[in-house]
Amino acid sequence: MINFNSIAELIALAEEKNLPVHAFVIAREMHTSQRSREALVEEMQRNWQVMKESIQRGIQNEEHSISGLTGGDARRIYAQRNTSYAGSAAMEAAAYAVGISEVNAVMGKIVACPTAGSCGIVPAVLFAAASQKKAAEEQIVEALFTAAGIGMVIEQNASIAGAAGGCQAECGSAAGMAAGALVELAGGTPEMVGQGVALAIKNLLGLACDPVAGLVEVPCVKRNGFAAVHAMVAADMALAGVKSVIPVDEVIEAMNRIGRALPRSLRETSEGGLAVTATAKRIEERLYGKKS
């Protein structure tokens, strides 16, 4: 049976057989779920369809969330894309990611990737790449399997839950998944895929999970936009031949160690960081009344 317990093992499989990473993620899943390749690809296509719908809805969204804290920013970012400093590709990715997260915040339909709080990052960069590089639908769906394989290893060796590892575990993991998928989509080698993951995660290590009023909105929604652009830069660096000095699995180990060292107050409890600022307290009071 095909199996992998680290990114290095996944890369070794791909290099040995001279096949892309996604082939081994699919092969493993076929074995563990006892489902055909066609069935798996079909389910992933359905997920991609939901992702695309959430992007379209997101960049047009004017609706505010129940709390009133988020809504309408994706539209603003998208409108600015051609006159921006960062360039249209980056601004589009940011708009898509913020848009998906806004749809999530108004109780719309999304695909958790790996979580609801980080659901914008992977689909945003893949959609932006597809429109820039004209990638075929089939390749995008395969790249989603690559992203999944990376996320599976991260979850096993560290965490993808903000409550366990802080936001580095959610948006950091999503950025790593997104960067790896982008490298593969651009024709990078499996080794470069690993570099992309390492570079993306490394630069988001230590990120706190301190949501205002306990809601998946501030800073989550806009952070999805930043992390999407971040993943694109990591992928571009890896494709340019930049290497992470610390190998990818050691970066994931470091993420795990940092997650454990983070105080409880910065792990989705809303008892620290942004969540206890004066403004956050006022927002909390407006939403829930005075704490007894």
């Binding site: 899943e29 999304i110 992203a147």
Partner: peptide, 22 residues
């Protein structure tokens, strides 16, 4: 290790997998 669709998935209504989907 969990499966592919535990990571890229599930399709759900937001905003929170634990507070909404669960």
């Amino acid at each position: 290790m969990r499966g592919v669709f535990d990571i890229v998935g599930p399709v759900m209504i937001g905003p929170s997998s634990s507070h909404t989907a669960g």
